[in-house]
Amino acid sequence: MSVDPATASGYTAHPQRMGFFTDTSVCIGCKACEVACKEWNAVPDDGMTFTGMSYDNTMSLSADTWRHVAFIEQPRPLGHQDPGVEGMDFRWLMASDVCKHCTHAACLDVCPTGSLFRTEFGTVVVQDDICNGCGYCVPACPYGVIGKRETTGVAAKCTLCYDRLGVGQEPACAKSCPTDSIQFGELDELRERAARRLEQMRAAGVDSARLYGHDPDDGVGGTGAFFLLLDEPEVYGLPPDPVVTTRDLPSMWRQAGIAAAVLLAGIAAATWGSRT
C-alpha cells in the first residue's frame, strides 16, 4: 500500500512526489555533492577533523552536513573485478547519504511547533524562522539525519533543495554528481529505474547489490531518497530496519493513561487507607 505524502498532508493539486535514487555502485567518492550542497544552501562548516578511520573525514549527517559520502574499505572482491594486487582482495564502497524524506517522517510527526512541514513535492522541510530549537526531531529521526545547529540554535537538514525544485531545477548535489550516482526525479519513475538497475547489476555478477528504502511497506512507508547498496545497510551507517517511532504512539498513550490511573488510584488508596 503506497501513500502519497503530499495528498495525505492535505494538498489537493500537487506535483509528482520527487526524490533521489542514489546508486552507490557508481559513486566515486569525489564529494562534489557535499560541496555543492554546502555552497548552494550556505551550510556552515562542520569542523576540520581528521578521523584516521578512512578517507571519510565528514563522518555523518548533521545540522551542518546535509550530504555525507561514506567510504568503506573491505578485504573482499567486487564482483568479478581483480584488484590487481597479488594475493589480496579488496574493494572500496562509497555512498552519498542524505535525508530520506520519509513517507512517514518521525521528525515531522514529533515537531511541536509545526516548523517541520511536508511540501507539495512530498519532501520534508524545516522552517527555520519557526523552529524554537527544542531538539525533539533530533532523536526522533531513525536515520540520524537532522541536527540542531550550534550557531543558530535551530534544527537544520536537507530540504531536497526546495528553492531549486520550485523553479524546476534539480537539487545541487544531483546536478554536481559526475557519475550520476545521485539521480533525481519523480519517485515512481526512479523506483522503476532502480529495479532495472538492480537486475543489471545482478546479471553482471554483483550479487551483493540490493535496494534500500524503496519498499513502501517498510517501517517508514518507503523513503523519498532511496539507495542501491553493495553491502548490508549498517555497513554504511544506515539502520537495517528503521521504523517511524510514532507507529507505536497509540500504545504509548494507552500505557500513559493506565499509569495516570494507577497514580491517582495509588495515592487515593494511600490517603484513605491511612489512619488519622
Binding site: 546508486d23 555502485s25 557508481v26 572482491p77 567486487l78 564482483g79 568479478h80 573485478q81 581483480d82 574493494r91 559526475p178 557519475t179 550520476d180 539521480q183 543489471q200 547489476m201 546479471a203 553482471a204 555478477g205 554483483v206
Partner: peptide, 14 residues
C-alpha cells in the same frame, strides 16, 4: 557511467 556495471570487468572467479 550511470549504466556502468561495476565489478563486471575482469572475468575472474569471485
Amino acid at each position: 557511467e550511470r549504466e556502468a556495471t561495476v565489478g563486471s570487468a575482469g572475468g575472474r572467479e569471485p
